[in-house]
Design a protein around this nucleic acid. Sequence first.
DNA 1: AAGCCAACCTGGACGC
DNA 2: TGCGTCCAGGTTGGCT
Length: 262
Amino acid sequence: MPELPEVETVRRVLEERLAGGTLASVAVPAVSFYRRPPERALSALAGGRLESVRRRGKYLLLSFGGRGELSLHLGMSGRLLLAADGATTSHCRLELSFDRGRLLFNDPRRFGRAACELPQLGPEPLGEEFTAESLRGALRGRRAPIKAALMDQSVVAGLGNIYATEALHRAGVRPAREAGRLSWEQTRALWRAIRSVLERGVALGGCTLDDEAFLDPLGRPGRFQGAVSVYGRRACRRGHALKRTARPIGGRTSLYCPECQR
DNA sequence: AAGCCAACCTGGACGC
DNA sequence: TGCGTCCAGGTTGGCT
């Protein structure tokens, strides 16, 4: 579910509501993520002050000063929520109790993660080091479909199926095109499209496509779904029927507009 | 090295 | 109503 704009939306709420507070305790239920978090390292964070809530790609980074850092990844179905006292949820995998409120990590599918380190990630797409030139360099020589490359977090950090799909449409590039063979014009258009589609996603508070989808920690849905051009639609905004690629790309179904995208 | 694919889980939608 | 099948917004590890 959550890609960069959703994670950024969560980050802003957590920053506003929890930053500066003290972590009183950490609880890991018996049934947690399928990769259990390192409980000892997590417990060591208790008593610390939450100095900042940052984001790197799709990861949230909660910094507790000298005590360490906690990285959270929401996986497919993860949701962070600020809960009233006593309230529980049906699939709680981690509970962080702060002096100013409880943060529950709910995750039915258990693909989410809590850890103390990050994997190697490509540049932040909204940061300065991500340029059309750096994108060209990352794609050079790649024979995989461009959409697979965009969802590779070591190429650029934060795109998943929705925003990769939307960026490719906005740039007029078909998802199955060989990544290393885009023209310079197409690469530049794609770079611009990635940034604009993510900025729009952030500005609209993320994408909430159906009832079970993304909600921020206060239970509020996003509004990007109203701005989507391809994902989950049958026709693009110019009325052309959308197609799905013959085979999945990067393991997932891929929609595109045969008229707008070449 | 790069690319492909199965595996990791659960729940909801759909067809019969 | 119940059962089987397919699908889902992500990442990883193993194999070629």
